[in-house]
Simulated assay, not measured.
Amino acid sequence: MKIDIEHFGLKDVPVDPETVFTFADGVAGFVDCKRFKVFHEEGKPTVFWLQSLDDPSVMFPIVAPETLDLEYQIELADTDCALLGLERAEDAVVVVIVYRDEAEGGKIAANTRSPIILNPINRRAMQKVLQEVHPTLLYRAR
């Protein structure tokens, strides 16, 4: 399988099945987009991209929360674990979608209320919409 990655002007990019995650319920606002290729630009291993295989115009930049000094403790329901085929909590990988917040002068922001949960063992994924978020402040001295 090959895809075009419009954002980078790339044509006929080979898709390794080991880099494709399936979102049974799609992603918020894009419920018909169920298959996503995960990749990163060469030389930029901290920002990954979720490229839809179902709609080439849909792509999200994602990062590990730790990159932004965020720490998540997420409780997954049994139905979430079943959807992900998750047998052990340590197998889950949590990432957040980042975006440029034009209202804040173009600063980089993250969708912290709807992290993406990936199971790299079976390549199933979901977007977990958190009903309650209890922030913890982290102070760093410099």
Rank of each mutant, 00 (worst) to 15 (best):
I3F: 01
I3P: 00
D4R: 04
D4C: 01
E6T: 13
H7S: 12
H7G: 01
H7W: 08
G9T: 00
G9R: 09
G9P: 06
G9Q: 00
K11G: 00
V13T: 06
V13R: 03
V13I: 10
V13S: 04
T19W: 07
V20R: 08
T22D: 01
F23K: 06
A24P: 11
D25H: 11
G26P: 03
G26Y: 05
G26N: 06
V27L: 14
A28S: 15
A28I: 15
G29C: 11
G29L: 11
F30L: 12
F30I: 05
D32F: 01
K34C: 02
R35Y: 09
F36A: 06
V38R: 14
E42Q: 11
E42L: 08
G43N: 12
T46K: 03
T46E: 07
F48P: 01
F48K: 09
L50S: 09
D55I: 05
P56K: 05
P56C: 01
S57M: 09
S57K: 15
S57Q: 15
V58P: 08
V63C: 04
V63I: 15
E66D: 10
E66Q: 07
T67K: 06
T67E: 12
T67F: 11
D69E: 11
L70F: 14
E71Q: 10
E71Y: 04
Y72E: 06
Y72K: 04
Q73S: 13
Q73C: 07
E75M: 03
E75Y: 00
L76W: 05
C81H: 01
L83K: 05
G85A: 01
G85Q: 00
L86K: 03
E87W: 02
A89V: 13
A89L: 10
A92K: 07
A92F: 07
V93A: 10
V93D: 04
V98W: 00
R100E: 13
R100F: 02
E102W: 02
G106W: 08
G106H: 12
A109R: 14
A110P: 07
T112N: 12
R113W: 06
R113M: 14
R113K: 14
R113D: 09
S114V: 10
P115Y: 13
I116E: 05
I116P: 04
I117G: 11
I117T: 12
P120V: 05
P120R: 04
I121Q: 13
R124Q: 14
M126H: 03
K128S: 10
K128T: 06
V129L: 13
H134N: 09
L138H: 13
Y139P: 01
Y139A: 13
R140V: 14
R140H: 12
R140D: 06
A141Q: 12
R142S: 11
